[in-house]
Write a protein that binds this DNA or RNA. Sequence first.
DNA 1: GTCTATACAGGGATAGAC
DNA 2: GTCTATCCCTGTATAGAC
Lengths: 215, 215
Amino acid sequence: MDGATAGPGLAEPFAALLDQYRFPAGYRRMLLAAVDAFAEHGFHGTTTRDIAARAGMSPAALYAHFSSKEELLHTIMSSALDLTAGMVSAEASRQVSAPGRLKAVVTALSAWQGYHFPVSRVVLYQLNALSAEHLAEVAGKMRVIDQTFRAIIADGVSAGDFTVADVRATATATLSLCLDVARWYYPGYRRTPQEIGEMNARAALRIVGVPEPPT
Amino acid sequence: MDGATAGPGLAEPFAALLDQYRFPAGYRRMLLAAVDAFAEHGFHGTTTRDIAARAGMSPAALYAHFSSKEELLHTIMSSALDLTAGMVSAEASRQVSAPGRLKAVVTALSAWQGYHFPVSRVVLYQLNALSAEHLAEVAGKMRVIDQTFRAIIADGVSAGDFTVADVRATATATLSLCLDVARWYYPGYRRTPQEIGEMNARAALRIVGVPEPPT
DNA sequence: GTCTATACAGGGATAGAC
DNA sequence: GTCTATCCCTGTATAGAC
């Protein structure tokens, strides 16, 4: 339980994205400290004292901003998923062809999972620490991303670009490529998140039966 | 924290595999109860009282078999990984060609991750609850599986069967397909673990540039 | 909105009988 | 090897001052 006191932390790239929310300073410090702590030790393995110490504040300061540790977790997941889903939707609409859209979303989401691996780990692996209500809400946000993948693959099949036996299963497989990056990626890995994204896009296109990527 | 008292639990398929270890009855019940509890709530979210209740024993009975909760976790991971790595090696040696071996290991490992999803979740997502020594040992066992995948892909490239840009990255991608099954699979899913394995094998072969699976 | 101090429940582990 | 009883620390959350 070392935990760097204050300082940026591994969630620094995520911090930049939070700017658009205009959160109060203390609230924001606490939130980012919690992302790093939850990613390292999990929700139940993290104490409110640890979060507060990383944020450079007293344990009680947490409750000026959040009613409970669980609400803090929910805020992290909810904002992270809004940003992720928005990014995926934006990437999907930057191209028209199904191969172009699949390449764009797999590249971007894979890179995102590496670049933002602390918060992505929290989102993927701390779901069952949420209350039933919060879990249902968060699961709904995740479903939006899944449906984007399904729609792209279904379109590619309709257009005759893709050859797949099962649209839903293929969406799951291509999503697995992207999401699993958050599990194994670590800073200093020999490839950048962007490079990982490009290789995964190539793999995803092969999975749907497109041997060479579109330009 | 409901938790079915005693009874088989979702780790029942794993229980059958443990027979070869000839563990004492109480030890075995405690171990299986812990698999279900850790898979549901995580290591830190599980109490020794919860484990004992699921096993139908008193909290103190745990310490007749394990010196600590962490040692119990380590025992689960270590035995599960031995069984998994053994299964993967056996599948890899049942075929001679690289395409045949890749198909065999991806099918078997994907099905395994679905069939044994509780223990697989514990192995994949509770690693940082281990002591440094235990983590190093467990990571070594995981590396064996990764190297099996790398060897198959390298062989396929050498033999001219596969066309990949990066052997290690391709091993990671095909492994992601298999391992991520443990994250999203749930009992009652519309496809059986075996069917998931077969679809993932098809996807993995496409990733390495084999358009149609070998028979 | 931040602090110090603290209430109070919960959890890992042990003692000692059977 | 299993039980009952319990120790004692840790952790979430609150009270109340500034």
